[in-house]
Design a protein around this nucleic acid. Structure first.
Lengths: 343, 343
DNA sequence: TTGTAAGCGTTATCAA
DNA sequence: TTGATAACGCTTACAA
């Protein structure tokens, strides 16, 4: 490997000068700079990033922490790809790299590993859940002054850096839309309450229902685990009380699609016999039959925002970064919810 | 940050001894080890990974190179999630970390950046295409002795480390299945020939057709770009020659689903009026209506295998690693191809 | 405007 | 079985 030293020799300057050229520091005679650049080019010199990190005491890496996911549930692959792209874009703009870390459930308490080893300067944490162990791990990180940002998950009572979407408003809009279309008996298929996501969606549902003068009928509340299969299974339960159901709002697309499949087997077709709206506006929403109305969540922007926020907090102790951010969602109407039920 | 020095002082040993304990090197009096470990624990010492990399002249990072993908075509998000998980599993087993790098098309020639900066010891390259510029970039890497492994893409005539699936055999099986079901007029919807993937699938199709005594009718060959939309658009063309088509073999699920959507709008339903088989066995195959028969590709294992192969080649110059690997695929039959066309 | 030199926290070699 | 010590390639005062 070509080192700075060789460049310095060839250019007949000191090593420090080579560094200055490559870091664009200090005033500098153009001719000198010229000579250094020329020498570097001739020799094929490229600064050693590891050595730079070592000297700067910063890795130049942003950690991205994901739940280890042979079986992804909450997150569609789509979600994941979008967020990663968003983080990737921001990171690249700031000259950082992304270090991916897949955590198994056992690693819960080990959020700190990447930091302690100093392989990353900050982290974006995806797929966190509100459990005791995660709360305490995160608190510990915070106490140690290790910067991180959560995406799509909040922790009430704690003040972490969090980038989320406005799921309450999104769900409210979705249910409002169903109400506007004339549906009254609206069931809600939610996911685990360990995700603030689920809680928010429930709030939105509740708000719209109450506002319309309707009560929250417990019989119309179902809980799946965000998988297609769970939606499929719940179709059986919905079918049992089909005379009380005109529409379903599901907390993600996969469950919505599973539900549609299950009900179709019983002869109930979405967009004809009942309406459905999902959440995420994933690829699957466009692929399903009928196409699924869904709440579009700006995953890309959330990833990008999280990366920006947490990297900003690296630069300057704790700066003017807004702690909690909520990005707007958008309702995408497709056939699954378009037509009023035919009596 | 706690350093080795402080641990050494507390444990009353030299710094070298602390290193030995943490690296499990050399013979060592248990009592000494005990003392060092105790001291480290008391102080909360963790080796600085950057300093280690610096001293070892190895980063401990495996680079994963992805095409930058606001608009993914060839690869479903599913594909990425699976491969990344596979790489992640292997990497973790070997104590490596994954450094993700999203390359924009302009970066084509810049495969070397990560290496030159020495931030990674090896790379797994996803989503490569067989173009002149990529060929030369990769050749350059090879000449510089920088280890990399390609996934799901081969370069004929060059000997790179490559992990692929047996797409020829997979496609052959799929078309055989259609033939066995009694279909004769089988169209083929392929993707860009820049991917060996596409070429392989075409070979498999051809092999099965010829073997059955059928000719390759150019009128039955269509080319999309692996997107759902392209499949949807091609439905119009297929529709025009519908009397010559009984079944379609599509080179990925997304195009297959787009095609099904397009034909459905014209009253043609897959699994009733014609048969379809896709490739990848992505989530979408299970979500589509009717569920789509598809060729399952072992993406997870491919990722894992690629990581293992390329990391092996890091350890030991160039070792006994098998250069080209092809993993088997598996045909998943679902409703879209189950029934013989009703005359 | 440029050079000198002191770190940075390890690994690894050589002696003891 | 352990200790000294020279790298490693850079950043960054401080000096000139």
């Amino acid at each position: 490997m070509v080192t700075r030293k060789e460049v310095a020799e060839l250019a007949k300057v000191s090593e420090a000068t080579v560094s200055r050229v490559f870091n664009g520091l200090g005033p500098m005679k153009p001719a000198t700079k010229e000579r250094v650049l020329e020498a570097a080019k001739v020799l094929g010199y490229h600064p050693n990033a590891i050595a730079q990190s070592f000297a700067r005491r910063r890795s130049g890496n942003l950690g991205v922490v994901l739940p280890y996911m042979p079986k992804v549930h909450l997150f569609s692959a789509y979600y994941f790809a979008e967020i990663l792209s968003g983080i990737g874009e921001q990171v690249r703009e700031q000259g950082y790299d992304m270090l991916l870390s897949l955590l198994t459930p056992d690693d819960d308490l080990d959020y700190g590993r990447l930091y302690r080893s100093q392989k990353v300067d900050a982290c974006v944490i995806l797929g966190a859940r509100d459990t005791e162990s995660q709360r305490s791990s995160l608190l510990q990180l915070q106490e140690q002054g290790l910067p991180f940002c959560l995406v799509n998950q909040r922790f009430e009572g704690l003040s972490f850096l969090e980038v989320d979407a406005d799921h309450v408003e999104g769900s409210y809009q979705a249910v409002r839309h169903l109400l506007d279309e004339g549906y009254r008996k609206i069931a809600f298929l939610n996911g685990s309450p360990h995700y603030t996501n689920s809680l928010d969606r429930r709030h939105g549902y509740q708000k719209a229902m109450l506002e319309a003068g309707l009560t929250m009928d417990p019989a119309l509340l179902f809980e799946g685990n965000y998988s297609r299969t769970s939606g499929y299974e719940i179709a059986a339960k919905v079918w049992e009380i089909r005379d009380q159901v005109e529409a379903v709002f599901a907390a993600n697309d996969r469950m919505a699609i599973g539900l549609m499949q299950g009900l179709r087997e019983r002869g109930w077709i979405a967009g004809r016999d009942y309406a459905v709206i999902g959440c995420d506006d994933s690829d699957a929403a466009k692929l399903s039959d009928p196409p699924l109305s869904s709440i579009k969540v700006p995953f890309f922007e959330m990833g990008k925002g999280a990366a920006r926020a947490v990297l900003a907090s690296v630069g300057q102790g704790s700066s003017e970064v807004q702690l909690q951010v909520k990005l707007p969602t958008e309702l995408k109407i497709r056939q699954s919810s378009k037509w009023i039920r035919q009596e």
